[in-house]
Nucleic acid binder design. Structure first.
Length: 666
DNA sequence: CGTCAGCGGGTTTTT
DNA sequence: CCCGCTGACG
């Protein structure tokens, strides 16, 4: 219906869309219409080649990207067909496979999914166990780092034949026990989900074939960010059909720290290769700055972005005296930009390297006063995109732990979290006794609790503690009963009643003020379950609960927690450089572009500088028309004021593209 | 066993 | 500066 030039494909885009067979590598520069190519390609397969929509698989990196693709595809072929195409993140896709087939690897389909902090808790416990209580536990950071690395590579152990180094041996032992516990708890985490999917494909040819047959055309977005395990999964999955299309941009690889291998895209064995370098997003001052910056990297396919949009405004750069004034200056400029260019708030994004920077910006936006046609207003509307806020809140994690424990009885991690929450007299002493016994006798925690309550095992618990354990088991039983007969939402409401969560939260709120949103969060959680239930009407409640808990663990459908209709309201968008990948905004503000922030001081040591440069490149190329880069001379760090230097990367952008302004210029 | 105050330690990015 | 943890006390 619309006749914008962007609705038609340029020759290379068209070629990428029509080259459906074989292994296709699409090198797509920032803003070159990558998503458009992917969605048109799916539409082409369905409409021109008669491929059933269900035979098409599109894998993305984030839920946001998957949702965006689904939306655009719906626009092309209608919602009914679009819904039959599998579009999901790698992790969601693996979740689906594992729910169906993981029993072949000795887990059950009720498995729990642990996040980073769950793993950390477990590692802490394991470390205490290995070292005993008398020894001081060393900082776990280096151990965690070693472990994370090994696991992201799908290794169950660190390198063999390593130096007899105490720390490595310790880490190895932790890793070994962690793996055993995860299995005993019937639990996976983000890394092992991928790892076990790969293992399933390798060890069970029938299962591999089943999944191979389900998808005859596979497309992968952001291929530069895939890890070796993800590479293996896709290779196995597409071996039979041979049809694999990967789309990516080596210059936008920013997840090396999570195990992404630039090698995947640099060495991809293709039968067809297509490069998209015409940019349809930004004016040329922005693109030339980005090109100049990224030219400083060595590991890359050379390319030069260009667009037909003219030079546009130069990039604006300013230095504020401190971080508060920087944030205020940004708020001020947002209002100015709105008036001058007629942008809506939602056209404007504020991007930062690390989440910690959002706080100060929020404060400035909240208190900023400005004049509108309707009078003086206070507060610029904003929305934080992809913040890790909600699901990490303790009250939500606690409630979720109850659900996890109900779904997966073996989930000792979840059980331990809630045996004494809300407080019911089972203190540390009792908990220690319980866990020690469970470990020593290799008796699953839940069974031990039941035996203890029944008097079959005596742990010499205090009367109070014993009563607490019994009460706890009764609660779980009652909730399970309730879940069987009613809806999930009703079951959860019953649970909340039963544990007197309201009273517990009131108590917490009383002791540390400013927490009154906790109860609100709980209510929001309940209504999110109701919504979920409505969306999945007709499904059996136990599988529904499984799905809900799984989705939440993968932060799927998180939109339901991010205000009513994310993106609908007219609000400035705040997010990290990482989260901004794949998005575009008429105007972008990059704040805190200082030398310890970008490049981050922690990444300067290893191979990180090139990745940090790519990260800034990604951020810069989000902007369509206006880009403002700012920094503060002084910034509070660890509570103390400290001087900052401009990012070294700024000096790599030719001065002619930059316009330096005074921070308080009106 | 629960509570509270005081202390030291720590900030990258995400599924 | 904001936590989470520790240790003393009720």
């Amino acid at each position: 219906m619309s006749h914008k030039a962007s609705d038609s494909l340029n020759p290379n885009q068209a070629k990428a869309v029509r080259t459906t067979e074989g292994r296709v590598l699409v090198l797509a520069g920032a803003g070159s219409g990558k998503t458009k190519v992917l969605t048109h390609r799916a539409a082409f397969l369905i409409q021109e080649k008669g491929i059933p929509p269900s035979k098409i698989l599109g894998l993305t990196f984030t839920n946001k990207a998957a949702a965006e693709m689904r939306k655009r595809l719906s626009g092309l072929i209608g919602a009914t067909s679009a819904e039959q195409v599998t579009l999901s993140t790698f992790h969601s896709f693996c979740l689906r496979i594992l729910r169906e087939d993981i029993h072949r690897l000795g887990f059950t389909d009720a498995f729990s999914i642990y996040d980073e902090s769950d793993i950390e808790r477990m590692v802490t416990g394991i470390a205490k166990d290995i070292l005993g209580t008398e020894k001081q536990i060393p900082s776990l950071a280096p151990t965690m780092a070693l472990i994370a690395k090994a696991r992201s590579q799908g290794k169950l152990f660190l390198k063999e034949g390593m130096e007899p180094n105490w720390h490595d041996e310790f880490a190895n032992e932790v890793l070994k026990r962690l793996g055993q516990s995860m299995r005993a708890y019937n639990a996976l985490d983000f890394d092992s989900m991928l790892f076990f999917t790969k293992q399933l494909f390798e060890e069970c040819p029938d299962i591999l074939e089943k999944w191979q047959d389900r998808f005859s055309y596979v497309m992968i977005d952001e291929y530069q960010d895939t890890s070796p395990v993800q590479y293996q999964i896709t290779e196995l999955l597409t071996r039979k059909s041979g049809n694999l299309c990967v789309v990516g941009d080596d210059d936008q690889s920013i997840y090396g720290w999570r195990g992404a291998h630039l090698k995947n895209i640099l060495d991809f064995q293709y039968t067809h290769r297509i490069t998209l370098d015409q940019n349809y997003r930004s004016t040329n001052h922005i693109l030339k700055s980005a090109n100049a910056l990224i030219a400083g990297n060595t590991m890359r396919h050379e390319k030069n972005l260009w667009s037909g949009f003219g030079d546009g405004d130069p990039l604006e750069v300013f230095v504020a005296p401190d971080e508060m004034m920087e944030a205020e200056a940004i708020a001020h400029r947002i209002i100015k930009l709105k008036e001058l260019k007629g942008f809506a708030f939602r056209d404007i994004a504020i991007l930062y390297r690390s989440n910690a920077l959002s706080r100060i910006m929020e404060k400035a936006l909240l208190k900023h006063m400005y004049v509108t046609p309707g009078g003086v207003k206070r507060g610029i509307p904003y929305e934080i995109v992809g913040g890790t806020e909600f699901y990490e809140r303790r009250e939500i994690k606690d409630l979720l732990a109850y659900l996890k424990a109900i779904v997966n009885e073996k989930d000792a991690e979840a059980l331990l979290r809630i045996i004494n929450y809300p407080r019911r007299g089972v203190g540390d002493e009792s908990l220690d006794r319980i866990t020690a016994f469970s470990r020593k006798e290799k008796l699953p925690l839940m069974e031990l609790l039941k035996k203890t309550a029944a008097g079959e095992v005596s742990l010499d618990l205090s009367n109070q503690a014993l009563a607490g354990v019994k009460q706890f088991l009764h609660i779980l039983e009652d909730v399970q009963g309730k879940l069987k007969e009613g809806s999930v939402a009703q079951g959860v409401e019953f649970l909340i009643e039963r544990i007197r969560l309201k009273a517990a939260i009131d108590l917490e709120v009383k002791s540390q003020k400013g927490q009154d949103f906790k109860w609100e969060n709980v209510q929001e959680f309940v209504s999110s379950i109701q919504e979920f239930e409505e969306e999945h009407a007709g499904e059996e409640s136990s599988s529904l609960l499984k799905k809900f808990v799984g989705d939440l663990s993968l932060k799927n459908n998180l939109a339901r927690f991010e205000g009513k209709d994310s993106g609908q309201t007219d609000a400035v968008q705040l997010m990290t450089f990482h989260s901004s990948k794949g998005l575009e905004f008429k105007a972008c503000f990059l704040m805190g572009v200082e030398d310890h922030i970008v490049p981050h001081e922690k990444s300067v040591l290893d191979v990180g500088v090139e990745e940090e440069r790519r990260l800034l490149y990604v951020a810069i190329t989000r902007a369509m028309r206006n880009l403002t880069i700012s920094m503060a001379k002084e910034r509070k760090r660890l509570g103390k004021q400290a001087v900052s230097r401009p990012s070294r990367f700024l000096f790599e952008i030719p001065k002619e593209y930059l316009k330096t302004t005074k921070w308080d210029e009106v």
